[in-house]
Design a protein around this nucleic acid. Structure first.
Length: 303
DNA sequence: AAGATAAGCAACCGCGGTCGG
DNA sequence: TCCGACCGCGGTTGCTTATCT
């Protein structure tokens, strides 16, 4: 019963790959495909375990891998997706063509995490350290997390779909993504998500949560930027002030919503948050959804 | 110039889900 | 239905290179 062991690890080489080994692996996969990773090393004549071969191929030798430094746009996208998905590197990598999960993980651990820390942001939550307590209960933060949950599920399904469709369909990924997202948004799933947001807005909110303080531009972008798709966390151009104003007005509306006791105000703030999500990043930051997103958005009455 | 330290990155390890026998 | 191998993923390690003192 069962299968034979994966590899007995005896006489198997470890450590860095040599150019000769790379050549053997590439040539074998080019001619035969990888098939079963377990049997590949033996068939190809490599003294490596299948796992090592798979890793080498997926992280380094695959022909569609984009080498070289990350562009600011890619870094921005990684930060935003991390705010939504957390440390799910494979799901993040699925949105960055040519980049591997390992590469993105390394980028995050060596660059982006430090960048957020320098800005006073918690790399795990993307929220400011200083306003951590009240903010975690703030409506903005709650809305963000609910959105993140929905968005997380969407991206996971999307990543799976794109992997599968790439096997058979050479069509550009981005258009398909945009279609998929908008169909989903306009479907019952999206509808129920919007209802959840409204219901969540009715739940009691501590008065302390209204004391939203904008410690700095970066503090604002921590709450709005990564999670809602804003870009101030990595903004490096002249739009920072404009973006900050957008964030400030967002929080003013959030604070106003919690100060008034009526549920309608909370519903409004949820809607406002949703609207900002739809309005704010659509032309810039959720570029992976496709260049003609405006057309889809307007035709579906989202903007 | 040399040693120490930091940064970057490739690769390994272990876990959990899935699937085959 | 159960057991165990396979696969993919995220966390971690360790080597190499760059920078600092």
């Amino acid at each position: 019963m069962g299968r034979t062991p994966c590899c007995d690890k005896k006489d198997l080489k470890k450590g860095p790959w040599t150019p000769e080994e790379d050549e053997i692996l590439v040539e074998y996969i080019r001619q035969n495909g990888h098939g079963s990773w377990r049997s590949l090393p033996k068939l190809a004549g490599l003294l490596r375990c299948g796992k090592s071969c798979r890793l080498r191929w997926t992280n380094y030798l695959r022909p569609d891998i984009k080498r070289g430094p990350f562009t600011p746009e890619e870094e921005k996208l990684v930060i935003q997706l991390h705010g939504i998905l957390g440390n799910r590197w494979a799901a993040i990598a699925a949105q960055l063509p040519g980049r591997t999960d390992n590469e993105i993980k390394n980028l995050w651990n060596t660059h982006l995490k430090k960048r957020l820390l320098c800005m006073g942001l918690d790399p795990h939550t993307h929220e400011p350290f200083l306003t951590r307590g009240p903010m975690t209960n703030s409506p903005a933060s709650t809305v963000t997390r609910h959105m993140a949950q929905w968005e997380s599920a969407r991206l996971e399904a999307e990543a799976r779909l794109s992997r599968e469709s790439n096997l058979f369909n050479p069509l550009p990924l981005q258009k398909a993504d945009a279609d998929h997202f908008l169909r989903l948004w306009n479907s019952e799933v999206g509808e129920s998500f919007r209802k959840i947001n409204l219901e969540m807005g009715r739940s009691p909110v501590s008065p302390a949560s209204s004391s939203v303080k904008c410690e700095s531009n970066s503090a604002i972008s921590a709450e709005m930027g990564p999670s809602l798709g804003g870009s101030a966390a990595v903004a490096n151009d002249g739009d920072e002030d404009k973006e900050c104003e957008t964030y400030k007005s967002y929080f003013q509306q959030m604070a106003a919503g919690t100060e008034s006791s009526g549920s309608s105000a909370l519903e409004d703030s949820s809607d406002t948050a949703l609207q900002l999500l739809l309005d704010f990043p659509i032309n810039n930051d959720i570029s992976f959804l496709g260049g003609d997103i405006d057309q889809y958005a307007s035709s579906s009455g989202l903007v």
